[in-house]
């Protein structure tokens, strides 16, 4: 019993949603096409080519490699720093823990530009550090750490890890043993979700990185900005295409993971 009015409303909403989706997706498709088109101005009729991608590879392979190195390093650091911290903040509780949590989530609110400026003003004088990719890493760690900590803490809150911890301690396990045997294995979903987030964000980070990089420490997004400003549209598009190819699997993994979690949650 669907009235004509309901039909109209449905169609209207569908069209609207499709329009929004088109706004988001059409330019991405255009850029992917442009990256493999001989001449974008003439359109796809001018032929399909990989020459731009190859050119990007020749020009920018180092930025891609560096971005991966930085993303994986940021992941390593956030794992080592974030998981124990999430655990400690969760079991300790209390006001101090809330204050600490508030402080470490501040980098989400403070624009990257401000953080980068602060880092430059503080460490600009240490020229060896300033010139190395580790300087960029420092910024990425500050920026991605809250995602790891929150993601892990969310799991802890959901599984009552405090009681699990107490129960392991009643069986004779030392704090360190408990951490390895009980805490980390049960935090795995949060660790995985946090890791995907950290890597994705680090690979795409621009605001901080643009301020922190030197000509010798360019990352992928920095290279992208570079190519947008100075390269022909096809090369810029091919470079963007490379970025999409890298980032899409991560996004898909995140999506699958979120769906999986939702389904599990619904099953309970």
């Amino acid at each position: 019993m669907i009235s004509i009015r309901d039909r109209l409303i449905f169609t209207g909403q569908l069209l609207f949603t499709l329009l929004v989706a088109a706004f988001l997706i059409v330019p991405a498709i255009l850029s992917m096409l442009a990256g493999v088109t001989v001449n974008y101005f003439q359109g796809i009729r001018s032929g399909v080519t990989l020459q731009w991608v190859i050119q990007v590879w020749e020009l920018y392979a180092d930025t891609i490699a560096r971005s991966f190195v930085i993303a994986l390093s940021a992941l390593t650091v956030t794992l080592i720093v974030g998981i124990p911290a999430a655990y400690a903040l969760h079991v300790r509780g209390g006001r101090l823990s809330r204050v600490v949590e508030e402080i470490i989530t501040l980098p989400l609110a403070v624009p990257g530009l401000a953080i980068a400026l602060g880092l430059l003003l503080t460490y600009g004088g240490f020229s060896d550090f300033r010139r190395s990719w580790l300087f960029i890493l420092a910024g990425h760690v500050v920026f991605t750490l809250p995602f790891m900590v929150r993601s892990v803490m969310a799991v802890f809150a959901a599984i009552d890890v405090k009681t699990l911890d107490e129960s392991a301690s009643s069986l004779g396990a030392s704090p360190w043993r408990r951490f390895l045997d009980v805490i980390v294995p049960n935090a795995r979903p949060g660790i995985l979700a946090g890791s995907l987030m950290v890597v994705t964000l680090s690979l795409g980070e621009f605001n901080l990185t643009w301020m922190l990089h030197t000509p010798l420490t360019k990352t992928l997004p920095v290279g992208l900005a570079d190519s947008y400003a100075s390269m022909r549209l096809e090369v810029a598009s091919a470079y963007t295409l490379v970025f999409f190819v890298m980032i899409i699997p991560l996004l898909v993994a995140m999506q699958i993971f979120a769906d999986h979690k939702r389904r599990q949650g619904a099953g309970r």
Binding site: E205, P221, T240
Partner: peptide, 11 residues
């Protein structure tokens, strides 16, 4: 609709 979630500002 959620795909551009991780696009950096430059992109």
């Amino acid at each position: 609709l959620t795909f551009p979630l991780a696009f950096p500002g430059v992109v």
